[in-house]
Amino acid sequence: MAALLLTACGGEEKDTTSPSTPSGVTAQAGSATSVHLMWEHAIDDKAVAGYEVFQKGARVKRLPATQQMVDIDRLSPKTVYSFTVRARDAAGNLSKPSAAIAVTTPAPTPQDKKAPTRPAKLRGKADGGRAATLTWEKAADNIRVSSYDIYQEDSRIHSVLGAETTARLTGLRPGTIYTFTVRARDAAENSSPDSNAVDLTTAPAPGDEVPSTAPTDLKAIARNRNVDLTWTPPGTGGPVKEHQLFLNGKLATTIVWGAAPPAGTATYTFAVTDKPGTRYSVKLRARLPDGKWGDFSAQRTVVIG
C-alpha cells in the first residue's frame, strides 16, 4: 500500500517585530488648555503605520504614520502633564514608549478678550520633497503672544512658542502644492487674523518629474455679495474647457466654457447668500484634455464683508 504524504502550506510568517521607539519628543504649552507635541519618525522592518500618544498610560491620540506632531486640547490650566509616544506597525505591534516628557500649562487669563495682531510677511521655502521652512514677523498682543499656529489650508498642523518666528514642517508629500498661513494666539485662546498666504511646491519624487496640472495664480476677492476669481489654467498642450470649483473642501460647481476657453487669465464670479463675516476657502482643478481631473490649485480664503 502506497503511503500518502501530506504537506502543510503555511501562510506568510507573522510579523512580530515592533517598530523602534520614537525619539526627540518635545512638548510645549500653546495656551492654558493645550499642549503641542512633536517627535522624530520611528523605523520598522516593514513600515510604520502610525503613532499613539499616551498621557499617564491612557491613549489620547491615534495618528497616521505621516503625522509626527499633534495638539492635545481641553486640558486644565496650571497643571503638569506627562506624555509618551509609541509607534505602531500594520500588524499592530507597538514600540516601547518614548521617554516621558513633562509640560505645565500656564494660568488662564479669562479677562483678556483682545486678539493678537496678524503675523506679517510670511515667507517660506520647500526643503526637498517632504519638508518646508516658514518664517514671519512677530505679532503683538496686549499681554503676550503665547504661540503661533501654522495652518495648511484650513487645518492647524503645527504650533511653535510665541518667542519663535520660524517653523520647520515635515511629513509633506513630494510634488504637491501647499498653502500655509500663520495665526498668533495668546494664553486666553484669542487668535489673530490669518497672515498672508504662502504657496509652496515640494520637489517631485525621483523618477516622477511630471509637470504640474494645477491652475496657478488663483486670486479671490469678495465684492459685496459676490466673489471674483481669477487664475491661469494649466498648460496641457490642449484646451482646458472645464474647472471644478471647491468651497470649504466640497465641490460647489463645474465651470464650463461653451465656446473656446479664455486665453491666458480666466475669470469667474459667483454669488453668496451667507451673512457678512462668513469665511470661504476656495480652490480649483481643471479637466485635462484626456478627460481626467488635474491637480488642485493652491487654496485661497476670503471673508464676506
Rank of each mutant, 00 (worst) to 15 (best):
R118G: 04
W257I: 06
P261G: 11
S18T: 00
T17F: 05
A65E: 13
L200G: 02
T232A: 07
V303I: 13
D194I: 00
P289T: 01
A100E: 14
E137I: 05
D127F: 07
G237W: 09
K61N: 13
A197D: 07
Y51C: 05
H41S: 15
P110N: 05
E13Q: 15
Y280P: 01
G57D: 12
A132N: 11
D73I: 02
T232H: 05
G171S: 07
F246T: 06
L63Y: 09
E153L: 03
D44E: 06
T278C: 10
G277E: 10
T33I: 02
E164V: 11
V240E: 04
E189H: 06
T253S: 14
D149V: 12
K14Y: 09
S76E: 15
K114N: 11
G129H: 10
P97I: 06
G238I: 00
T79E: 12
R285M: 06
V303Y: 00
L218D: 03
T133Y: 04
T26M: 14
A27G: 03
L251F: 06
S159P: 07
A163P: 02
P233E: 05
F296Q: 04
V256Q: 10
Y280F: 15
N190D: 13
A167D: 05
Q67D: 10
A132E: 12
K292E: 13
I221M: 01
L229S: 04
Y280I: 05
G92T: 00
A58S: 15
K125I: 07
V103R: 04
R118M: 14
G50Q: 09
N93W: 04
K125W: 07
F54G: 04
K121L: 11
N142F: 04
R74T: 07
T232M: 12
Q244R: 12
A87M: 10
V282F: 03
D228W: 00
V35Q: 00
V80C: 04
H41M: 09
W293F: 08
G291C: 10
N196T: 06
R225K: 14
K56P: 01
F246Q: 07
S192F: 08
G294I: 02
V302S: 00
P174K: 08
S76L: 14
H36Y: 12
V60S: 01
V60L: 09
P110C: 07
L75V: 04
A126H: 06
I177K: 02
P193A: 10
D194K: 08
S281I: 03
P211V: 07
A263Q: 15
S147Y: 01
K61G: 00
S95M: 11
A286M: 09
G128M: 08
T33S: 14
A32L: 05
C9V: 13
R168A: 09
